[in-house]
């Protein structure tokens, strides 16, 4: 690794100032699980690492008076999944957070880091999109809010401008009779990258689907919404047949590549399977069932 300076600001404003001063050669640094490896391998470059973990608002998770949740972008995954009221209310987001890596990774890795790495296969992003999460971006020209669904623009690319950083996520309060789920298909259950990932949220009243949202990972240059499939579900009965049909429609939103993790055709097939299973799991959860997606047989 080449020589690098280290800054540990205490406020978001100071962090932005440090990034601005670095003039394009500064990198925001949260858990470091991606960036330290990339710096060492020379796939990324930086003169200054700006450590965000000493900034209180960036490592906090709290419920706002509105019922929404605010999660600091540098909050480690283990803290998110051990915040019981959040974990119980948002099992779909926890599904993604839980499999982001082994224990050692989860002690460091953050939602902000996962999002800013902007991998099409990022495990936390589809569920965040399905839950209508929004990020607060702070930069030299002030702050702005961007829905997570519009954040990534391509593999490793996103809407951040120079010296901007993602400060926090806001996840809207769950509607009644709603739940979510994230599933990914991989050959093993940990420390691997998704062949396909699928995050869903579902709202059901009297067995009729009122709202649905489906986000897919690893099947396009960035995480994508399967909007046609979600729209089709509205007003349909909450049954496995409806979810299967939604899965078929969702396959149209997938434009995957073939790589060592699987050929495009296989990935498209998996979209149908995962959408069906993820929606079914969301349904079971909103009816009060606890489903551990790593050990349940699913449907």
């Amino acid at each position: 690794m080449k020589e690098i300076a280290y800054a540990a600001p205490r406020t978001v404003a100071d962090a932005v100032a440090a990034l601005k001063q670095a003039n394009g050669n500064g990198k925001a640094f949260a858990g470091g699980t991606d960036i330290l490896v990339q710096l060492r391998e020379g796939t990324r470059n930086a003169d200054v690492l700006v450590d965000l973990k000493k900034i209180p608002e960036m490592t906090e998770i709290r419920q706002l008076p509105s019922g929404d949740w605010q999660i600091g972008a540098a909050t480690p995954c283990h803290r998110i999944e051990s915040t019981v009221p959040f974990a119980e209310g948002y099992p779909g987001i926890i599904d993604g957070v839980h499999i982001i890596g082994g224990w050692q990774i989860k002690g460091r890795a953050s939602l902000g880091g996962n999002l800013c790495t902007s991998s099409p296969a990022a495990d936390s992003i589809p569920a965040l999109i399905a839950h209508h999460a929004v990020v607060k971006i702070v930069g030299p020209d002030g702050s702005r809010e961007v829905p997570v669904s519009e954040f990534c623009t391509g593999p490793g690319k996103n809407v951040l401008k120079p010296a901007e950083l993602v400060a926090s996520f806001v996840i809207p309060a769950m509607l009644p009779n709603s739940s979510g789920c994230y599933l990914r298909f991989i050959p093993r259950s940990e420390m691997d990258i998704a062949v396909v990932g699928c995050g869903t949220t579902l709202t059901v009243e009297k067995d009729t689907i009122k709202q649905a949202r489906i986000a897919l990972g690893a099947v396009a240059p960035k995480p994508v919404l399967a909007e046609e499939a979600a729209a089709w579900l509205i007003g349909k009965p909450a049954t496995i047949e409806s979810f299967e049909k939604a899965g078929e429609i969702a396959r149209k939103a997938a434009t995957p590549i073939s790589d060592m993790r699987g050929p495009a055709e296989y990935r498209t097939h998996l979209v149908g399977v995962l959408v069906k299973r993820s929606l079914m799991t969301s349904l079971r959860r909103l009816r009060g069932e606890r489903v551990d997606v790593l050990h349940d047989k699913l449907v």
């Binding site: 280290y6 990774i105 002690g107």
Partner: peptide
């Protein structure tokens, strides 16, 4: 793997200064 304040962490993926 080492314990940082009791939590298991990869020592290779953390800077000494932190």
């Amino acid at each position: 793997t080492v314990l940082i304040d009791g939590k298991s962490i990869y020592a290779c993926s953390m800077l000494a200064i932190e």
